[in-house]
Design a protein around this nucleic acid. Sequence first.
DNA 1: ACGATACGTCGGAGATTTCCGACAGGTCAA
DNA 2: TTGACCTGTCGGAAATCTCCGACGTATCGT
Lengths: 118, 118
Amino acid sequence: MAPDVFSALANPVRRRLLDALLDGPRAAGDLAGRFDLSRPAVSEHLQVLRQVGLVREEPRGRKRYYHLDPRPLAEVGRWLHPFENYWRGRLDALGALLDAEADDVPRPADSPDPDGSR
Amino acid sequence: MAPDVFSALANPVRRRLLDALLDGPRAAGDLAGRFDLSRPAVSEHLQVLRQVGLVREEPRGRKRYYHLDPRPLAEVGRWLHPFENYWRGRLDALGALLDAEADDVPRPADSPDPDGSR
DNA sequence: ACGATACGTCGGAGATTTCCGACAGGTCAA
DNA sequence: TTGACCTGTCGGAAATCTCCGACGTATCGT
């Protein structure tokens, strides 16, 4: 239902949950206390994070500690990478030559473009 | 309505649109042709990307070229960064010493934890 | 001017997400 | 055992997202 990491990160509450887990495992109730949200709501957010593997659960006594597992975030990093390269490429090109015009149509590349106006 | 980058990236179609723009500007129709989706649907995805600043629009004749602007992705990179550090930290700690026990409760840190079982 | 093309936007249907109160199961202390 | 905790899950309401067909506007070719 929310099977990918990107959707899991779309919600600010879930991002803040992960942030909170950065400095160590926390009990569910402790986490819930940090939000202006009902406890069930937080619990459901934790369930989503669990489903995508971003947190692990460790029951201890009557508390339930949540551990961060950042490994699924690698997918986001991998997706992001080409864009960082792209960005650097643009900067280089811009430094080497002012290509204000070549910039507008770098390359038709794929489509023959049967509508080449201008 | 979708005011943040993370939500914009939550949809796989939108991610693929950005992927497609990596090798140069593309006309809206060209982009729409790559998906098993109605043209209006793709147009609306482009609108979301426009709203968060991930693409720019350049009308040219009767076509509309979309340019990639990866700058808003920097926010994602910034958010991701502490987790990469965390991950490296775990690896280091694991290499330096087998801390299987210290791992379970690194630090109560914040809460006095009035329920310290075990 | 006319018809075809390229595209955005609107109205609305259907699916998904987010949230809450209520409830249930398991754990601890007495 | 009893009662106070800690937490997950269920049922359902409300908001949001995703998508489509229909329509409007602007541009191009003739």
